[in-house]
Simulated assay, not measured.
Amino acid sequence: MNASRLLLGSFLFALASAASAATACAPTIDKPWVRSAPPGAKSLAGYLVLRNGCDAPVTVVDVESLDFGMPMIHRTVEEGGVSRMRPAGKLEVPPGGELRFEPGGLHLMLMRPLRPLADGDVARVRLVLADGRRVFAEFPVRRAAP
C-alpha cells in the first residue's frame, strides 16, 4: 500500500511540476506609458514593449484595464493616403522576440476613461494571453515618450 501511495504521489508531483514549468515563464512589459490628453478626452493611447523571454511563442488576444471602459489594441494603417486605426487582432510574439507598441503603429487605444488621468498619474493595464494568463503593468501618464 505504501508503494502505491509513493508511486501516486510521485506521479502527481511530476504532473504538477510539468504544469508549473509550462506556465512559469511569462512575457514582460517594458517601457509602458500612456500619452496624456486634455481634460475630458474620451480616449488615450498607450505604448509599451512586450518581450517574450520564453521558449515558446505567446499570443496576445486582448487588453483589460480598471481605468478604461473600453480598452482595445489597434494598429495604424495607411489606406488611400489616409491613416486609419484598425483592430490588431491576435498578436504572436515568437520565443526571444518582442512586440513594440509605438506612436504611428501598433498601440493601445484606451477608450472611455473611468477617472481623470493627468501627467504623473498611473493607468493600470493588463494584456490577455491566448492561454488565459494576464500580464500586468502600471502605465505612467506622460506628455511624451520616456
Rank of each mutant, 00 (worst) to 15 (best):
A137Q: 07
D67V: 05
G69Y: 01
R51I: 00
I73D: 07
D67G: 04
P71V: 04
A123D: 06
G53K: 02
A14F: 09
L108R: 00
P87G: 10
P87Y: 04
V60Q: 08
P95N: 02
R75H: 10
P32M: 07
G97L: 02
G46W: 08
G97M: 02
L91C: 00
A145P: 07
V60P: 03
N52R: 12
L48I: 04
F68V: 00
L99S: 04
A123S: 12
R86H: 10
R86P: 02
M70Q: 13
L50H: 01
V128G: 08
L7V: 15
L91Y: 00
A22S: 14
A21K: 06
N2K: 13
A123T: 03
M72L: 15
N52D: 08
R100W: 08
R112A: 11
G120Y: 06
D55S: 14
R100D: 02
H107E: 09
V141Q: 08
I29M: 01
F13H: 11
M111N: 12
V125D: 00
V63G: 02
D55C: 01
E98V: 00
P113H: 04
V82I: 13
H107S: 10
M85K: 09
A145Y: 09
E78C: 01
P140Y: 05
P113Q: 06
L91P: 00
G96I: 03
D119Y: 01
T76H: 08
V82C: 01
L8K: 13
S20I: 04
A22Y: 14
S4Q: 14
V63F: 02
T28G: 06
A14H: 00
L99I: 05
P57W: 07
E102D: 11
E78Y: 02
P140L: 07
S83V: 13
A37K: 07
E138C: 06
F11E: 13
R126A: 03
V34E: 04
S43G: 03
D67R: 00
A41D: 08
F68N: 04
G132K: 12
L127P: 06
E98Q: 15
A41K: 02
V58N: 05
G96V: 06
V49G: 00
E102W: 03
P95G: 08
V135R: 02
M109V: 01
W33S: 05
L8W: 13
L127H: 06
R112P: 00
T23L: 12
M111H: 07
